[in-house]
Design a binder for these strands. Structure first.
Lengths: 236, 236
DNA sequence: GAAGATCGTTGATCAAAATCAGAAATGAGG
DNA sequence: CCTCATTTCTGATTTTGATCAACGATCTTC
């Protein structure tokens, strides 16, 4: 559990940065910000951000590393992956307790926004800006869930895996990281569970895509070979 | 296209009602509310609420009837159904243009909330309350999308269809309508597309569930027979 | 750096659901 | 009430992906 992989660090593009901008607290003196944000908190692989049933207090912003969320149940179902720059827990705003469990997939760091006393800490003008930001972030999250549904809902296993690789790339790119070369933070089994496939199927398809020259897969290192002929595959 | 089915009317439980409460405008004099809400607007079966690419202006609240949303593409993919009391379009808040297309499945009526100039129409206190309501509605919508993903992501076709019937019932119940007896607003083909199955598979499974005495299906009329042994089926 | 655990890969078999083709029922409109 | 279009249903065949079993590679920990 030591920090072996080089942590991916982002800042200008990170969701926290945007939050801070919206708060209007970019100045060196971050006194107000510090009341509601815990910055750059390290987290180890396997460590839980929260479990289903825990009281809701923080919004988590993945600074480096990545996370996975599960729906409780037997067996637990993989619901989402969270990449650097993405927000964990926004769907539980307004609930008293978390509906799912989130775990770090790699050693990394998070920022945490305490929204239990935003109202008390901020002026009405600040509160309006922060709420507007959170509303837009929640709406964006819903759109991303729809996008993920398009991936997991594709008819064939091959299309799902192709679309999954492209979707991850797009999400890395949205936060300033390369879209066509990245390291998979999750196992084959986790990909399979997420996509509703058997792990063996995922493995076989990754191999087939490789032998067709569409991608290069070396265990967890992915390279989508340009021109991305992969895109045509992922179409319904 | 004439109004043949008896429209389902709700009020106390409708999302609009909650919005109005939050706005603090329950009084007989609804002057402020009237600046931002179009109430009880009729809509015919097949009519579009908005199309992908249209500018975003309103949030729609299904008052009676029901709607379907499609992701543009060839062929278009059924993304969601919206039942009485549910909100259409919340995921496009913060976007300039709609990402998908919404169509009425039945003759019914909608309420529309114009959020393009909420800021101008409302006082800061009102705005904070409305924003908080919208934020919670957006978060709730994201949780419902996750819930729907659990349905569409179940491993077998039988589990998906069983969970789909139960999910519809729960959603009717959440707005004061019976959970165990309702009329399906959508066709077998639309159910199949939504669940990622062939229409024939949906039909065969509905029949099988009927012959096992778990439900009674007469074309579009659904009755979930208590005790809902159907629930055990829908478990992963 | 070696041992053990986890993860990834491969091949053979089997079950589930898609596809294809066509018949019956429903409901919208005249 | 009757017709036409749409939707729903049924059966036969084919394809896809799940399952089972076993082996190899890679990471973790000591």
């Amino acid at each position: 559990m030591s920090a072996r992989h080089i942590p991916i660090v982002i800042c200008q593009n990170c969701a926290l940065y945007n939050t801070a901008r919206v708060l209007g607290l970019e100045s060196p003196d971050c006194s107000t910000l510090d009341q509601v944000v815990i910055r750059n908190h390290p987290i180890d692989r396997g460590q839980r951000l929260f479990s289903a049933g825990d009281p809701v207090r923080y919004l988590y912003l993945v600074h480096s590393g990545s996370c996975i969320s599960y729906q409780a149940g037997e067996p637990p179902k993989v619901m989402s992956f969270y990449l650097p720059g993405e927000i964990v827990g926004i769907e539980d705003i307004g609930e008293s307790h978390h509906s799912h469990t989130a775990v770090a997939l790699e050693n990394g760091s998070l920022c945490q926004l305490d929204f239990t006393h935003l109202d008390a800490s901020l002026s009405p003008e600040e509160l309006i800006r922060v709420q507007r930001y959170l509303l837009q972030a929640a709406a964006l999250h819903a759109r991303q869930l729809q996008q993920e549904r398009l991936v997991t809902g594709l008819p064939s296993a091959e299309q799902r895996v192709a679309a999954f690789l492209l979707n991850l790339g797009q999400r890395f790119q949205a936060h300033g990281l390369p879209a066509l070369a990245y390291r998979l933070p999750m196992s084959r089994e986790e990909i399979a569970d997420y996509l509703g496939l058997a792990p063996e199927t995922v493995i076989r398809i990754l191999k087939k895509l490789g032998s067709r020259g569409l991608v290069s897969i070396r265990t967890r290192q992915v390279e989508i070979l340009p021109p991305p002929a992969l895109e045509r595959l992922s179409a319904a």
